[in-house]
Each structure stands twice: as C-alpha cells, then as structure tokens.
Write a protein that binds this DNA or RNA. Structure first.
Lengths: 219, 219
DNA sequence: GTGAACACGTGAAAC
DNA sequence: TGTTTCACGTGTTCA
C-alpha cells in the first residue's frame, strides 16, 4: 500500500531530520545495508529508499530556500513601508497595496500639477517666433490663460495691460520672463464674456506689435 | 507511541478528506461507535478522536482561508503593478519593492519640484502681512529668489525695478499676483555680488513701503 | 529527470 | 481558553 510506504519514509525522515548531509543520512541505516554498497561506491547513495530520502531532503531544502527568499522580501517591505502596525504577512501585503495605490495617485496628481504648471510654460518656449494663444482654464471656469511671446520692448507691459483694460478683464495672476530681448508672458485673465476671448486676442496681438514709444505709465 | 496515533488520525483524515462537515466525518466511523454516542447527543462529536479530527479540520480550513487571503493580495498586487513579467510570488514581491522605491523617489522629487515651484509660493500666502525674503536658489547658483508681499499700489513695480536697477541686478524671471489689493511677487534675480543680497534687500524694503505717487515709467 | 513553484495539512508558538 | 500566524516537509505540476 502506497500510504504505508510513505509512512515508513516519513519515519525515516523524522529520525534523520537533523542530519545535514548525505553521509549522516547513510549513517542512520543498518550496517548490513551499508556494507553491501560499500565496495561499489563510497559515498553515492544506492538503494531506492536512500535515493528517495536524498530527494526529499533536497526538496525540503530547496523549499526552505524559497521560503527564506520570500520572507526576506517581506522583511524589506516591512522596513520600506512607513506606518506598519501589524507586521504579519497579510497586513504587510495589505499595507503595501494601500501604499502603492496612494503613491500612484500622488504621483499622477503631482505630475498633472507640474504639467499644468505655469512656470513650465514660461520656460518651455525660448524661441524667437511671436506667439499668442488664449485658452480656457480647465481647472477654473471663467479664467482664460493668455500665453504670449514676442520681442521685449519699452512699454510692452503697458500696452498689454491697456489691451486688458479695454475688454474690462482683470489679471488675477501673471508670469513674465524676459530673456535675450524676448519676452514671454502668461496671464490668467478673469471677467471675459463669451465673446470677449476673441476681442482680447486681437487687442493683445495689436499690443504685442505696437512700436515702442515712451508712454505715461499709470498702473 | 505518539507517532502511531498521529498516523491513525492522519489516515482517518485522509479518508474523510473531502467530507465537508461534522456529520460526514461521523459517517466515516464504525456504526458501533456511533450508536454508543447516538442517544446522548445527536450531532455533537464526543470521542477524543472525533474532537481531534474536527479540530484538525477546523485548523486546516482556517489555514486555507489564510492562504487564500494572502494569495488574493498577491493577485491584486499583480494587477496593480505594471510591467510584471514573471508572476510568481517572489517576483511579484521583488517587483513591488522596486516599484515602491521608485514611486517614493518620484514623489519626493516631484514634491521638491513643487515646493521650489514659484506658483505655489505665490499662491501660498494670501495674508495681509508684509513680507520680504531673499534666498539663494539651490538649483541655479548665482540666482537669488526674492519673495515679497505687500500692499498693491500705483507704481509698485516701478519702485521695485528701480531698486533692482540700483544694485545692477537683472530679473531673469518674475511672477506677480495681485489679489484684493495685496500684491505678491517672486523675482529671480541674477548678477548680485556677494554683498549685493543685503543691499538689494534693504532697497526692496524701501521700495515696498514707498508711498504711492505718479512716476515717469521707464522700463 | 531536474528544478522551480505552489497548495496542502500539521505542530508549535503568540496572544 | 481558542484563535491566528508561522515554518515545515511533502505531493504535485509545469517547463
């Protein structure tokens, strides 16, 4: 009966549990058996039982290595993750999942922030071609972002604010950078009507191209 | 011998392995045994063997639940993480560790970016107290970031640019926001000497507090 | 026929 | 007390 065979192996195995190599295992068997195989091969196991035992030992050792590998990774997870209260495997995994999700959300949020980050816009185009672009902010309804780059000159800002005044728009925020004679501005404009966008755009285009001249400055 | 007892239990257990409740297990025993306990209690197990078997069953089932719980979390990890090639437990854990580290690094990097992000600075303090702060940029050597918030007024920007002119500094970038009569500006200033920072600071303080008056604007 | 990976049941320890 | 968690050795399957 197969089951009995397993039991015998199991008992042998238990008896030799703490032996750590093939010689020790062999030492656990009857002397008569050993002497039968002694002359043909000194250390190599011969009998089917021996082979099975060695295989079992190898198997359990491999399994132990696998367990240790996995447990080591649990340990590093425990060290990496903050706010670990319970440190059993299931909790570690649960906390890991939670943290990964949070981190992912955080990253996507931060990446979106930095992509909609005005400073990046300003830095983005240091080229010499004139540009004018108006777009509705997707974050804030009613706010229009005007991006313009042109030659920097005396009174440019006055011209621009004049254009804004004409359409009764209010600048709630502005970023201006002037590099190498080129100016780039990003204006967040509030209070434009539905048709105000087109009007502002044309007025801004004029302001950008207005020839330089001395002006009375009234902010 | 304790070992034999376990074996018997083990065989019983194996025989009843696929039964799913106490009644089925009881059905696996001799009829004589059942009739002995039949009158006193209909369904509750009586003998020590039965109790042990039930305990073993409960134990193995609990262990199975635990395994399933953990494996479910492995599965969610496999779904959450991108770029999973090998999906065995060790690889999943390894990949998880890697991803967590990467995400952490990414987050700290992005958070640093956004903390040195001028827009955030501008938005950060909408309060009514005057402030003036100069600090060296840790990204760009030689660039000083001047952050100032004060009452908005006619000619404020002229005063500030006048102060900058006096120390022969150049503004490479500026962010200005005016809300509710308060102005907040962040200026990135280049070309300051070692002692220029202090000088600029005092000049800026004067410019901020200068009483409003009409001025000739020369940008 | 090896090695790797997994699920399983079980003894032991923690609480 | 019983419940929970872990390590272990084993059987099995897959490449």
């Amino acid at each position: 009966m197969a089951f009995i065979r397993q039991l015998v192996q199991g008992m042998q195995h238990v008896r030799n549990y703490y032996n750590s190599d093939a010689q020790m295992i062999r030492g656990g068997f009857h002397q008569t058996f050993i002497s039968r195989t002694y002359k043909t091969s000194f250390l190599k196991p011969r009998s089917k039982v021996e082979i099975k035992l060695l295989a079992a030992k190898k198997h359990s050792e491999a399994e132990k290595r696998r367990r240790m590998r996995i447990n080591g990774q649990y340990e590093t997870l425990r060290n990496i993750l903050p706010n670990i209260i319970k440190k059993d495997k299931a909790s570690v995994l649960a906390e890991t999942i939670k943290q990964v999700k949070e981190l992912k959300k955080k990253v996507s949020k931060l990446e979106q922030d930095s992509s909609s980050n005005p400073s990046k816009d300003v830095v983005k185009f240091p080229n010499g071609t004139d540009k004018l672009n108006l777009e509705r902010c997707n974050n804030d309804e009613g706010i229009v972002k005007a991006t313009l780059s042109c030659e920097d000159r005396l009174g440019l800002m006055s011209s621009i604010s004049g254009a804004l005044e004409q359409v009764k728009a209010k600048v709630v925020k502005a970023e201006i950078v002037s590099v190498g004679g080129r100016a780039r501005s990003v204006l967040w404009v509030q209070g434009l009507g539905n048709d105000g966008t087109g009007t502002l755009k044309s007025k801004l285009r004029v302001a950008m191209q207005k020839p330089p001249k001395m002006q009375r400055f009234t902010q």
